Amino acid sequence: MKTIQVKPWGKDQGDFVLINEEDFDESVHERIDEGAKKGGKKPAAPAQDPVSKE
């Protein structure tokens, strides 16, 4: 069974809640990965350390 991440709806649920994909209800849940599916911004690439010259 596939699970998805949704935004928490209670204080003690942490950063996200995993639910079964078939239990997703748009009137109750908000997907965390929604931006990725609708062309949202990609995460920024990590900054690279400058090469030190010795």
Rank of each mutant, 00 (worst) to 15 (best):
H29M: 01
W9H: 07
D25H: 11
A45I: 08
G10D: 09
D33K: 12
F16I: 02
L18I: 03
E26V: 13
D12T: 08
E26G: 05
E54S: 10
K41M: 05
G10M: 12
D23Q: 12
D25Q: 13
D23F: 04
D12L: 13
M1R: 11
I4C: 08
K7Y: 09
I19A: 03
P43Y: 10
K2R: 15
S52A: 07
V17Q: 03
Q5Y: 04
N20I: 01
P46R: 12
I32L: 06
E54M: 05
R31E: 10
R31F: 00
P46K: 15
F24K: 03
V51D: 01
K38D: 06
K37C: 05
P46G: 05
Q48A: 13
I32D: 04
I19V: 10
G39D: 05
L18V: 03
K38G: 00
S27H: 09
K53G: 04
N20K: 13
A44H: 09
G35H: 14
K11V: 14
P46I: 08
K2I: 04
L18M: 10
Q13E: 15
G35L: 14
G10Y: 03
I19Q: 00
A44E: 09
D12G: 14
P8A: 14
M1S: 11
S27K: 15
G10L: 12
K7S: 02
Q48I: 07
V6Q: 06
D15N: 13
G40P: 04
I32H: 01
K38H: 02
V51R: 07
H29R: 04
K38F: 06
K42T: 14
K53R: 11
K41E: 13
I32Y: 01
K41S: 12
N20C: 02
V6N: 03
P8R: 09
R31T: 08
D33S: 14
Q48Y: 08
K7A: 12
V17K: 03
D23T: 04
G35E: 09
D49R: 15
F16D: 00
T3F: 03
P50M: 11
Q5K: 15
V51G: 00
V17Y: 02
V17N: 01
K11D: 13
V51L: 06
S27A: 15
S27M: 12
K41I: 05
R31Q: 07
A47Y: 13
K42P: 11
D33V: 02
P8K: 07
G40V: 08
D23R: 03
K38E: 12
F16P: 00
I4D: 01
A45D: 08
E26I: 13
K41P: 10
K11W: 11
K42W: 07
D23C: 08
M1L: 08
K11F: 09
K41T: 11
M1I: 04
R31W: 00
H29T: 06
S27E: 06
S27C: 04
F16H: 11
L18G: 00
I19G: 06
P50T: 14
A44V: 11
G40S: 10
V6W: 00
P8I: 10
G35M: 07
G40N: 12
V6I: 13
K2L: 08
G39H: 05
P43W: 04
K37G: 03
G10Q: 15
G39F: 08
H29S: 01
T3D: 01
E34D: 13
V28Q: 11
K2W: 05
